[in-house]
Design a protein around this nucleic acid. Structure first.
Lengths: 132, 132
DNA sequence: TTAAACAATGGAGTATACTCCACTGTCAAG
DNA sequence: CTTGACAGTGGAGTATACTCCATTGTTTAA
């Protein structure tokens, strides 16, 4: 199929598919062309792109996705391997959540301080922005 | 003071200070130069950079920081204004946390499915990466 | 036939926040 | 005097994931 059809079937834009091709996530051999030089994308490529979509939906980056794809290609994407990577990602997410929680608390504290640090309607700049 | 001293006092690198200057977050007038053309940074600039540091520590972007700085310059950085912006940021953070929680759950669910979708030691690729 | 859509390629831009590089000039210490 | 650190400027790169632009060629439908 041509890139337009592939785009339709995968939900990725043509440009994104071209980008992935450039990044090496998918490939089209020189021989896989029509007479007019248009690239003929195989159903394997379609499947691969849909797999990419799944992996990305788990929050993995393109680089990480590429790693998964390599495991799949080598038939080494076992549940162990996948679960390990997923657990690592879970840890990163937990850390990020923690970080955001801290930031949120800092902001909430700041806001509540803010409601007491100036008299209402005061035209002074907020003391919270002052150097600490 | 020269940029090296300013860098030391603020914790920002020289390059970062130059970057902020280029972005317009701080400025040095043509007249504020030494005879050798070295920029003379005022204590006001020092204070401004330290304020930038505070605002950034609240999780605001450089663009948002610039908005705050403008409010401060115009003596309009009242507690109301600041609190409003902080509350907006809190909402964004809450949304992001929610998003990350969902992703985490998806991954945790996937991992636990992973432990039942293949028999131990199986050499098959994990079915979780299959198209859904 | 014509115009629009589609395909290809190469290159650059977007957003964000820096960071590095190359080069020239100045200053300070050995 | 010499060398290394510091200052200036302009330009480009890094990371990430696209997205847009310009141009040329092909196909399709009116």
């Amino acid at each position: 199929m041509l890139i337009g059809e592939l785009s339709e079937k995968t939900g990725f834009t043509r440009d994104t598919i071209r980008f992935y091709e450039k990044q090496g996530l998918i490939s089209v051999g020189r021989k896989e062309r029509r007479e007019n030089n248009y690239k003929e994308y195989s159903s394997d490529t379609l499947k691969r792109l849909l797999t990419i979509k799944v992996i990305k939906s788990f929050g993995f980056t393109l680089n990480e996705t590429a790693e998964f794809l390599e495991l799949i290609e080598n038939n080494r994407a076992s549940c162990d391997n996948v679960a390990n990577k997923a657990e690592e990602k879970v840890k990163l997410i937990e850390a990020k959540i923690k970080e955001l929680q801290s930031l949120k608390e800092l902001l909430v504290d700041s806001v509540s301080q803010c409601q007491t640090c100036c008299s209402p309607g005061s035209s002074e700049n907020c003391a919270l922005l002052e150097v600490r």
